[in-house]
Amino acid sequence: MKKVKVLILRAAGTNCDYETQFAFELCGAVVDRVHINSLLAGRKDKIFEYDILALPGGFSYGDDIASGRVLANEIKNKLSDRIRKFVLRGNPVIGICNGFQVLVKMGLLPDPELFEQIATLSYNSSNKFECRWVYLKIEKKIKNESNCIWTKNLPNVINLPVAHGEGKFITKNQKILKSLNRNNQIVFRYSTKDGNKPAYPLCPNGSIQQIAGICNIKGNVFGLMPHPERYIFALQHPARECCADKKYGWGKIIFQNAVDFVE
């Protein structure tokens, strides 16, 4: 069987590319870490050799102005046709942390057909970088009705770590927020251990409605602030909890879902 191919797009300041690569490889995919310069310089259809696109975490171009904005602009101005086509074809796309910020700021989330920025990830309410583990809740309605291909086979509440200074999810207006809810796009919310509404620091950034991760309506594009690639093994969990086999963590399921979807 043909192996699933993943393109991890990196730029100056990308720094979660190796562990993201490892996570996909563990799930049986073949992974290339490709610098945006070489994607720009290479053949126009190079991106279509791949099944999955991943935008990993980091501080693209230093994130000195605002997280993800410089890379979002660069992709939008130089790669927009290719990347939009890739997304609209239904290929799985994931943006983790800085990658999520990039997806939102170039407008691939929440609505890639619109392809405009209608939401943002703003400064944490605590005004500081937060590196900690959180509980993430997947609502029953989401489990049953969401199209998200990335979040299948997960229990009601999982743990993942976050590490960001700008993770407060905000939509441009109430209408957009309502449609995100209505269309089952809010796949992860920060929660307490029992799935209840959390206060700081369990909600580490002050996101509206505790939003931690969203997908598009079709369910192939997924962006989240937490880092699934940092919870591949039970060993990576602070209390070494595991999801199965005494070995793996919940993060692995997320990558496995996308690889299985392509297969």
């Binding site: 171009y61 230093g62 000195d64 102005i65 904005r69 410089v70 602009n73 660069e74 101005n77 130089k78």
Partner: peptide, 15 residues
């Protein structure tokens, strides 16, 4: 001034 340095790069990307 690192912010200024990254703006110089990003301005080029805007065409």
């Amino acid at each position: 001034d690192t912010v200024a340095e990254s703006i110089v790069k990003a301005v080029k990307d805007l065409g």
